[in-house]
């Protein structure tokens, strides 16, 4: 893994939904160990960018390399926390079972059977699920039905499900959009800790808030508007959103 300097590389990426361009000429490089915040207005293409990196969407032109491979080949090494859960909340499944699904791709990474590996989860899988839940301080939720979780608890479960994958890169789409502010800093404190072991890519609409945590910010509004290592100021925000935005200073 050491020889890979650029963890993720996008060159001249163009993507449109049915002719309407969402991303144009996006060049972006992400280095090992970075904690990159992707910010920008709604419908600016942030989630689309993540889906391209995950290989869930294909760019119309340009190229994307993740861990030196094509996104579809690399995605088993990526942990992903979606903005909205893709499952019905009344699905009959416990938190532990849902987290354990993340283990499916882990064994198959080394298995000749690939993802057709039959049978049950083993002790290692169970242990990994417990550890991931402990890491997000949700080990007491293991036996709860997902339908009984609060918004913040569900977010922790989704994070545990991404961590149990043992990812090289953790990718999160608005991880704090549906929870209250106190939990927001809890989650970002946790991400900061995780950043010691893995690179993190997080989409957020709250530019002021993330700038206190991330190592670098990329601003996306159809194209990559800016690319800053240093603090975000009003000038940059205006450039990005095209109008005056009320900025609240956060103290961390």
């Amino acid at each position: 893994m050491n020889e890979i300097q650029k963890l993720i590389e996008l060159k001249g990426v163009f993507f449109s939904y049915g002719g309407v361009p969402v991303l144009e000429k996006v060049d972006l490089q992400i280095q090992e160990g970075e904690f990159l915040g992707i910010v920008g207005p709604n419908a600016g293409g942030k989630s689309t960018l993540l889906k391209l990196i995950l290989g869930l969407l294909e760019p119309q032109s340009g190229h994307i390399r993740v861990l030196g491979k094509r996104p579809k080949e690399a995605r088993q090494q990526l942990g992903y926390v979606p903005q909205y859960p893709n499952f019905p909340r009344d699905f009959p499944i416990t938190v532990e079972q849902a987290v354990m699904i993340g283990r499916l791709g882990v064994r198959s990474r080394h298995s000749p059977f690939g993802n057709l590996y039959p049978g049950r989860y083993n002790r290692t899988d169970r242990l990994a699920a417990r550890q991931a839940l402990a890491e997000v301080e949700a080990d007491n939720l293991a036996d709860r039905q997902i339908g009984s979780l609060s918004g913040g608890q569900l977010q922790r479960m989704l994070l545990a499900r991404a961590l149990v994958v043992e990812p090289s890169i953790l990718i999160l789409d608005e991880p704090t959009a549906n929870i209250d502010q106190r939990l927001e800093s809890d989650i970002f404190d946790l991400l900061k800790r995780l950043n010691e072991r893995m690179s993190i890519l997080v989409v957020s609409h709250d530019i002021g808030f993330v700038s206190g945590y991330v190592t670098r910010v990329a601003c996306i509004n159809r194209t990559l508007v800016c690319h800053h290592a240093d603090a975000i100021d009003g000038q940059v925000i205006q450039e990005l959103y095209g109008e005056n935005v009320h900025m609240v200073v956060h103290q961390h």
Binding site: L56, N86, F87, I93, Q97, G102, G114, N115
Partner: peptide, 20 residues
């Protein structure tokens, strides 16, 4: 294949990301 079926009926997108 009950694990794979569970993954697919629970969350297709996540299952796809796991390489299923």
């Amino acid at each position: 294949y009950h694990r794979q079926f569970l993954a697919v009926v629970f969350d297709e997108e996540f299952a796809r990301l796991r390489g299923i």
